[in-house]
């Protein structure tokens, strides 16, 4: 088993009247890309801030690269890289100057900065952009520069907070290729996102909702083992009427539009499939096809969320 790069145990953060994170536990192994997935405000950023020693946990504990997050935050900060949501760079500084600044504050020796800069900027594809001001870089390039700055000191652990928000798909793909290369060379990576498709890129992931982890594991694991119920994909028309009928009929727990199809989720899909054609036909809906399919991550999370909301709103 690879050594542990990060462990969080029952991390909890309460603000005055509000619990942002409650009992969050997970671990990241060396060279692993771990995803924290969840909607905005779910507690992802608060969790990262605790792990970086910026916020003191109300309860629980954690280590990053073997250092305690409460007692040794400076040791941690020296060894990790962090790319914030807005990939904050200095717009009036050039690509090279931005890099030099971060390399400097991370204590990279002055004589080795320019070599580091050459290597790192080449890695992120900005080698020929050194004299360009950060302000005039397109979004994708800015994000790669932010990543380069976070890698200036060759960190063993990389935190990325929503690194792909507002970045075009091609740049997103390029970023993930970079992350895989980094992970392969032994860097551990913790990435937060609210994009489902992106979460599938992670080796393992945790789904955070209202400050709690509601599902954790590999994407495949989640789809195969943590899915409660089955997913039926319906190709029919008109979609909106079909959706209304499905929601009223209680054949399934959940029904939602999924592109030009409907995904309906229920505990016993086979039984429902028997009744379905007649029900739809009665109301004038043409059913082209209906089949049980493998769930997507989104399907998994929709059912998990439903489960959480029910337990919150009607405590049994």
């Amino acid at each position: 088993m690879s050594p542990l790069s990060l462990s969080a145990e029952q991390l909890t953060k309460r603000f005055d009247h509000f619990t942002a994170v409650e009992g969050v536990s997970f671990s990241v192994q060396r060279g692993e890309i771990y995803g924290l997935l969840g909607p905005n405000g779910a507690g992802k950023t608060t969790t990262i801030r605790m792990l970086l020693g910026l916020l003191r946990p109300t309860a629980g504990q954690g280590t990053v690269l073997g250092y305690d997050i409460v007692r040794q935050p400076e040791e941690i900060r020296r060894r990790v890289g962090y790319v914030s949501q807005k990939f904050s760079l200095y717009p009036d500084l050039t690509v090279a100057e931005n890099f030099n600044f971060y390399a400097g504050v991370y204590g990279v020796a002055r004589r080795s900065i320019s070599a580091r800069r050459g290597d790192t900027l080449a890695l992120v594809g900005l080698a020929d952009q050194e004299p360009v001001r950060a302000a005039s870089l397109p979004g994708g390039a800015r994000q790669r520069l932010a990543l380069a700055c976070a890698l200036a000191h060759q960190p063993d652990f990389l935190f990325l907070d929503e690194p792909t928000a507002g970045v075009d798909p091609i740049s997103r793909r390029a970023l993930w290729d970079l992350l895989y290369a980094l992970a392969a060379s032994g860097t551990s990576i913790l990435v937060t996102t609210h994009y489902m498709d992106e979460a599938e890129n992670c080796y393992r992931l945790a789904f955070i909702y209202q400050g709690r982890i509601v599902a954790e594991g590999t994407a495949r694991d989640m789809k195969e083992q943590q899915m409660q119920g089955q997913v039926v994909e319906l190709d029919c028309e008109p979609l909106d009427r079909a959706l209304t009928i499905l929601r009223q009929a209680h054949l399934f727990d959940e029904a939602a539009l999924y592109g030009s199809t409907i995904h309906a989720i229920g505990p016993d899909a086979q039984a429902a499939l028997v009744q379905l054609p007649g029900l739809l036909a009665d109301q004038g809906v043409t059913l082209h096809s209906a089949e049980v399919i493998a769930p997507s991550l989104e399907d998994v999370f929709i059912t998990r969320l439903r489960h959480v909301d029910q337990s919150v709103h009607s405590p049994a």
Binding site: L54, R77, R78, V80, Y82, S88, V105, F159
Partner: peptide, 8 residues
Amino acid sequence: IEQLVVTP
């Protein structure tokens, strides 16, 4: 500043 506070 958010970026600076996570540096050493």
